[in-house]
């Protein structure tokens, strides 16, 4: 089974999902992520789903679950790069991912977490493109 790699950049963990998700993959990701957050003391998690074209209700709930879990471990989760079709599907499924923050792309997501791609001072968070 493929595992989704978790990258660390500063105090932010970066998860880039490159394939369509299977249920087991997401569950494994949740476990890995919880462990990594505790081990590294990360303050933020960015989940990049630009490459994901298909979601179902289970994946949607798991995303919300991951966000809630990270919150408990004191790390904010931002889901970035959701495709229009995926967003429409989730809304049709009645999942609005209540506790999850979202951003258009990785750059915006990192800025939301106060970690810009270059030096990442919190002052940059105000400075929009």
């Amino acid at each position: 089974m493929d595992r989704v790699p978790i990258l660390k950049a500063g105090d932010v963990l970066l998860v880039s999902i490159q394939t369509d998700l299977e249920d087991r993959t997401v569950m494994a990701l949740r476990e890995d992520l919880a462990e990594r957050i505790v081990r590294t003391g990360a303050r933020g998690v960015v989940i990049d789903i630009t490459a994901v074209e298909i979601v179902d209700s289970f994946i949607g709930q798991m995303l919300a679950g991951i966000a809630a879990m990270s919150q408990l471990l004191d790390a904010r989760t931002v889901v970035v790069g959701m495709r229009p079709a995926v967003a429409i599907t989730l809304v049709e499924l009645g999942l609005s991912l209540g506790g999850v923050q979202t951003a258009l792309d990785l750059e915006t997501g990192l800025r939301l977490l106060g970690a810009g791609p270059l030096d990442g001072g919190p002052s940059e968070a105000q400075d929009r493109r």
Binding site: M82, I88, L104
Partner: peptide, 12 residues
């Protein structure tokens, strides 16, 4: 509402 929720999901 659906449109707006979907936009929110995408971070807008």
């Amino acid at each position: 509402m659906k449109t707006i929720k979907a936009a929110r999901l995408m971070g807008a």
